[in-house]
Computed example of a mutant assay.
Amino acid sequence: MTILVAYDGSGPARKAVEHAFVTYPDEEIVLLRVVEAASGSTTAGFDLAREYLKDRRDEIAEKGFDEVPEFENPDDVEFSTEVAVGQPAAEIVTFAEDHDVAHIIVGSHGRTGVSRVLLGSVAERIVRRSPVPVTVVR
């Protein structure tokens, strides 16, 4: 069984990872970090934006998970990391569909303050769109 954990570096996302390690220590755990793509790109700037996002994805893939070994992982649970580019909720659900994920674990929120209100809740969108069960960790 594959467990997908949405990871953005926030406190709730770190708790989601720790929850996965404790609850599913013998399962395949994948941490997915989504490099958020800006919406509203014009056709003229599309190639430039795509190249920037590819570079950013590669940068995060190389060093974006440096803090993961610091998680509370008492049983040395094995996990893998993946990076996607796009809108977080859509990319997380798509990854789950494409990789036969059985369960998604997500932190209750990654953003705070005004940006969270304006941009909506990624966790809520994942819960609404997911084809598999979702656990939201607070």
Rank of each mutant, 00 (worst) to 15 (best):
E97C: 05
V117G: 09
V85Y: 00
I104S: 09
D100W: 11
A84D: 02
V101H: 12
H109W: 12
I104E: 01
F95K: 06
H109F: 15
G110Y: 13
S115P: 09
A89V: 02
H99L: 12
Q87A: 11
A90W: 03
H99A: 03
A102P: 13
V93L: 06
E91D: 06
A90K: 10
T94R: 07
D100K: 14
R116T: 04
A102Y: 11
H103M: 12
A96N: 05
H103F: 07
V106I: 15
A90S: 13
G113R: 11
I104A: 05
E97G: 12
F95H: 09
I105A: 06
E91Q: 06
G113C: 12
I92R: 03
A90H: 05
A90P: 01
A96P: 00
T94A: 11
F95D: 00
D98Y: 03
H99G: 06
I92C: 02
A96T: 14
T94C: 02
E91T: 01
I104W: 02
H99S: 10
H109K: 15
G110Q: 11
V106Q: 04
T94L: 07
V117L: 15
G113T: 13
P88M: 03
R111M: 13
T112K: 14
D100N: 14
T94Y: 00
H109T: 11
D98H: 10
E91Y: 00
I104K: 03
V114C: 09
T112Q: 09
S115G: 10
R116S: 15
V106L: 08
G110A: 05
Q87F: 07
R111W: 07
R116E: 14
I92Q: 00
A89P: 02
R116Y: 14
E91C: 03
V114Q: 09
A90M: 01
G107V: 10
V117R: 11
G110T: 10
V106M: 09
A90L: 03
T112L: 08
G86A: 07
E97Y: 02
G113W: 07
G113L: 05
A89G: 13
A102H: 15
G110W: 08
S108M: 04
V93M: 03
V93N: 05
A84I: 01
V93D: 06
E97A: 11
V101G: 04
H103P: 13
A84P: 00
G113K: 08
T112C: 08
E91P: 10
R111I: 05
H109V: 11
V106C: 06
A89H: 03
